[in-house]
């Protein structure tokens, strides 16, 4: 009952974020309609990072406890991360086309998210190449953690070597946020709604995994 209510609230908030992004929030001075993609691009990129971090956490947990369900949780989190990563790439690409003139020009931000997607595509390639469940879990958990320690190099190294046109993320060097109240409201509620959607998606997957494991146990 409570879950159903929460689900409905999530549906309502996500819808109003879409509405608010297009009709409620005013445009920033001197910028075009395309800036509205910001309300979707930043939250998807944020969820990508969160999902991969949660995935790495579950991978670490698997290596510690050797309980298969943690590996499946890590897989689920990384799947969601990959999905949102693709969404962040698409929305970012739209921004790039409108403001820099081309969908893709190997800006450091574009490069780093591309590599991130490549890493997790490789993670799933590895998973499909190992049949035995516990071995697959151990190998992919190790790869996940290995990938996770190299990601900071993309975030720090690549932009230091090549200059980026990407606007500063959320908090910029002046520590100010250039948004007025209405924009900020839509932006923050979008962040919150996406985070809630992520939690809900992950919970669904974890529930499915639990049922699948129970089914297997009954078969044996």
């Amino acid at each position: 009952m409570l879950v159903k209510l929460l689900k409905f609230i999530l549906y309502f908030v996500l819808s109003s974020v879409i509405y608010g992004a297009f009709f409620y929030a005013p445009l920033a001075k001197g910028l075009g309609e395309y800036t509205r993609v910001l309300y979707f691009h930043v939250p998807t990129a944020w969820i990508t990072v969160i999902a991969f971090a949660v995935g790495a956490l579950f991978s670490g947990l698997y290596l510690r406890k050797k309980i298969l369900k943690y590996d499946l949780w890590a897989e689920a989190a990384n799947q969601i991360g990959l999905l949102f990563g693709v969404l962040a790439t698409i929305t970012g690409s739209i921004w790039a086309k409108m403001s820099w003139g081309s969908f893709w020009n190997w800006d450091p931000r574009e490069t780093s998210i591309f590599i991130l997607l490549l890493i997790y595509a490789a993670y799933f390639a590895l998973r499909s190449a190992v049949e035995q469940a516990d071995r697959r879990a151990a190998l992919s958990a190790v790869y996940d953690l290995l990938a996770f320690v190299t990601v900071p190099f993309f975030v720090f190294v690549v932009p230091r070597i090549y200059e980026s046109l990407h606007p500063d993320p959320l908090v910029n060097t002046q520590g100010k946020i250039h948004m007025d109240g209405k924009m900020l409201l839509v932006f923050l509620s979008s962040l919150a709604a996406y985070t809630a959607a992520f939690v809900w998606l992950l919970k669904q997957r974890i529930d499915i995994i639990r049922i699948q494991l129970q089914l297997k146990q009954m078969e044996n």
Partner: peptide
Amino acid sequence: IVAAIISKSNTKGALFTVLAFPILLPVIVS
């Protein structure tokens, strides 16, 4: 370390480069 991973998997050849490339990219770029 990637060699250790793929030596335990079923397909060894092609997977090595696929797994190693994204991880080693910072080395190549720098």
